[in-house]
Amino acid sequence: MPDFVPDLSVILGFALAGFVLAVTPGPDMALFVSRTMNFGRAHGFAAVLGTSTGIAVHTMLVAFGISVLIVAAPAAFWALKVAGALYLVWLAIQAIRAGGGILVTRAAGKQPTLVQSYMTGLAINLTNPKVALFFVTFLPQFISASDRAAASKLLFLGAEFIIVSLPVVVATVLFAEWLTTTLRDKQWISKALNWSFAAVFMAFAATILLAQGRK
């Protein structure tokens, strides 16, 4: 077996942990649903690709030690927390504004490009301190510090996480597309979903800021 491939027990254990994390609701899942319901399946998958790119970045940072430096520097990590929280607040505002980019109700002339949906997914992932903290604290638990192939194995596990989470996020996008077709003519449900998305983003923003404020 190549040096960069962990033991089978490690692969299976990490796959289970990755699946649990993937099915846990969060701002990324809310973004997948809202982009799909507003702009279609392609935009949902573009947001998925953006968050997957973010996960790849986090994995590389952990593998090469940069994320550890971020966590070790309180000012830098605090800035990351605040940036992530403010971005979620902005998304919440967009969710309840007429013509906003997150709305379930389609708005003529306001459709973003696929690149914009991709960048939104990437930004949410990169500015989410919980994702950074997960990869910094959890991912290394599956690797021995004395392993000379530790960096390559961390990259392998990062790729594994993306693969394990793909069925979950693909199912989320497809379900959102079905839900859009089913509820297209029920405007009050669309408005309720808009406010629900806003509540999700605001709740995560408040959690991030309050957690920082207690330190």
Rank of each mutant, 00 (worst) to 15 (best):
F64L: 07
G18I: 03
M119F: 03
Q212E: 15
L122S: 03
R148C: 08
Q94D: 05
V89Q: 06
E177F: 14
L209Q: 10
A159Q: 11
V164M: 08
G109K: 00
I55S: 03
V5A: 09
S144I: 04
L210W: 11
W78M: 15
V200E: 09
R148F: 12
S9W: 15
T120Q: 11
I162A: 09
L154C: 03
T36G: 04
Y118R: 04
Y118C: 05
S146H: 06
D3H: 15
S165V: 13
I11D: 06
G40A: 07
V57R: 00
A95S: 15
D7T: 10
G100V: 05
V33I: 15
A171Y: 08
K215R: 10
V89L: 15
W90G: 10
I189Q: 07
A46S: 08
L183I: 12
G158W: 02
A83T: 12
I162L: 12
M37A: 07
L157A: 02
W78I: 13
Q116G: 02
N128T: 06
K153M: 06
V33L: 12
V62Y: 02
L166M: 10
A211N: 13
G109C: 03
G101C: 11
P140Q: 09
F134C: 02
N125T: 10
F204T: 07
I143F: 02
I96K: 01
V131S: 09
G101H: 08
V82N: 02
V48M: 08
K191M: 13
T53F: 14
K191G: 12
G65S: 10
V170T: 14
G100E: 05
T24R: 08
Y87M: 11
A132T: 14
M202N: 03
V200W: 07
L114M: 14
A15T: 04
A17L: 15
A98L: 07
P167L: 07
L61D: 00
K153Q: 11
M119Y: 05
V57S: 01
P2R: 01
I11S: 04
A15H: 03
L157P: 01
Y118K: 03
I93A: 08
G84S: 14
T127V: 10
A30R: 07
S117N: 01
T182W: 08
K130M: 11
V200K: 06
N128R: 04
V169R: 14
A151L: 07
I143N: 09
I55A: 09
K191F: 14
V200Y: 09
V168Y: 12
T51P: 07
Q111R: 13
Q111A: 14
I55K: 06
S9R: 12
L210H: 08
L126D: 03
L154N: 01
P140M: 06
S117F: 00
S165L: 11
M1E: 12
T207D: 15
W90Y: 15
L155K: 00
A159L: 12
S117E: 02
S52W: 09
L155H: 00
S9Y: 15
L139V: 08
A198K: 03
V136N: 03
L31P: 03
S165F: 04
A30V: 05
V131R: 02
L31D: 02
L166E: 06
A17N: 13
A73Q: 05
V169Q: 14
G109M: 05
